[in-house]
Measured scan of single mutants.
Amino acid sequence: MAIVADHLGLSWTELARELNFSVDEINQIRVENPNSLISQSFMLLKKWVTRDGKNATTDALTSVLTKINRIDIVTLLE
């Protein structure tokens, strides 16, 4: 997760939308982690794993990252 969080940057909100997080949930992550995109990205991934449990797999994440054109991160995960 740390590799993904380190590289997402501003794309974390796009990833959040693709992972079916609501606008309110995205804003809450922003408010709770106001000074760091990496912290926002990491919190998103943590919430995703908590919410989706065993369905929050590397394959699922890779699929969504591909959908938002972040092949650079997919390559890092391989």
Rank of each mutant, 00 (worst) to 15 (best):
E18P: 00
K46R: 13
V23Y: 05
V74L: 06
N27W: 07
R17N: 15
P34E: 08
L65Q: 00
V74T: 10
I73V: 08
N35V: 06
L19C: 02
P34A: 08
T50N: 09
T50R: 11
I26S: 02
V31N: 13
V49H: 09
L37T: 13
D24I: 06
W48R: 00
V74M: 03
I68D: 02
L10N: 10
M43T: 14
N35M: 08
A2L: 10
A5T: 03
S11F: 04
L77T: 06
N27E: 09
L65T: 05
E78V: 09
T66L: 11
N55T: 10
L10F: 14
L19N: 02
T66D: 06
T62N: 06
A16K: 01
N33C: 14
I26R: 05
I26Q: 05
I26A: 05
M43R: 10
I68P: 07
N20A: 10
V23K: 10
D6A: 08
L76C: 12
L44W: 02
D24C: 07
V23A: 10
T58G: 11
D6T: 08
N69L: 04
I29G: 01
W48T: 01
E78P: 11
L8M: 05
T13S: 11
A56M: 05
L61N: 05
D59P: 12
N35W: 05
T58V: 14
N55A: 14
N33Q: 15
N27S: 10
N33Y: 09
T50L: 14
T57L: 02
V74Y: 05
N27Q: 14
A2Y: 13
I29Q: 05
V23R: 13
N33S: 13
T57M: 06
V49L: 12
E32H: 06
T66C: 09
I71V: 14
T58K: 14
L44R: 02
V64G: 12
V4G: 01
D24R: 08
I68V: 08
D24M: 06
I38V: 14
S39R: 13
P34N: 07
R17F: 11
G9C: 03
L65E: 02
L37S: 10
D24T: 10
T50V: 13
N55W: 10
G53R: 07
N35H: 08
K54H: 14
L8Y: 04
N20I: 04
A60P: 00
V64S: 12
T13N: 07
L65N: 06
N33G: 04
L65I: 02
R30Q: 09
N27K: 11
L76M: 15
V31P: 01
V31M: 09
N55D: 15
A2R: 15
R30L: 13
I26D: 01
D72R: 02
I68K: 04
L19H: 04
F21E: 00
K46Q: 15
L44V: 09
S22F: 04
D24E: 14
W48I: 02
F21Y: 07
T75N: 15
T75A: 12
Q28L: 08
E32I: 04
L10A: 12
P34C: 04
I3F: 14
M1L: 10
E18V: 10
D52N: 04
S39W: 06
S36V: 00
L10V: 14
D72H: 03
F21H: 02
K46F: 03
W12Q: 05
D6R: 10
H7R: 12
A2C: 11
S39K: 13
V74P: 02
D24H: 12
L15C: 06
I29M: 05
A16H: 04
R51T: 00
I68W: 01
E14F: 06
K54W: 09
K46D: 14
P34K: 05
I71D: 15
G53M: 03
L61T: 00
I29L: 06
L8I: 09
D59Y: 08
E14I: 08
N27P: 01
M43N: 10
D59F: 05
A5I: 03
T57E: 02
D6W: 05
R17C: 11
D52P: 03
R70V: 01
A60Y: 06
D59G: 13
H7I: 04
D59I: 06
L61P: 01
S41C: 05
N20G: 11
E25H: 02
G9L: 00
T66N: 11
I68H: 01
P34D: 08
M1C: 09
M1F: 09
S63Q: 13
I3C: 08
H7F: 05
L8K: 04
T50D: 15
L45C: 06
E78N: 13
M43W: 09
S63W: 06
G9P: 01
T66H: 13
L61G: 00
A2F: 13
E18K: 05
E14T: 09
Q40I: 04
R51Q: 00
T62C: 08
Q28K: 10
M43C: 15
L19F: 06
S63V: 12
T50G: 14
T58F: 11
I38A: 13
A5K: 04
K67A: 10
Q40M: 10
S41V: 02
V64W: 04
T75W: 09
S39N: 15
T13I: 13
N20T: 06
I38S: 15
S41T: 08
V31Y: 14
S36L: 00
K47S: 12
V31G: 11
A5G: 07
M1A: 07
T58Y: 14
A5D: 03
A60V: 13
I38C: 12
T58A: 12
P34G: 07
T13W: 03
N33R: 10
L44D: 04
Q40R: 06
I29A: 03
K67L: 04
T57Q: 07
S41M: 02
T62Q: 09
F42L: 12
L77K: 04
R30V: 09
L45M: 09
T57V: 10
F42M: 15
G53T: 05
L65Y: 03
M1V: 10
A16G: 08
N20M: 11
N33L: 03
L15D: 00
V64E: 13
L61I: 07
T58R: 12
V64R: 07
N20H: 13
S36A: 04
T58C: 10
W12T: 00
D52G: 04
E14Y: 06
V4L: 06
N20R: 09
V23Q: 15
L76E: 09
D52S: 05
A5V: 06
A56R: 05
D59T: 11
T66R: 12
A2D: 15
D59A: 13
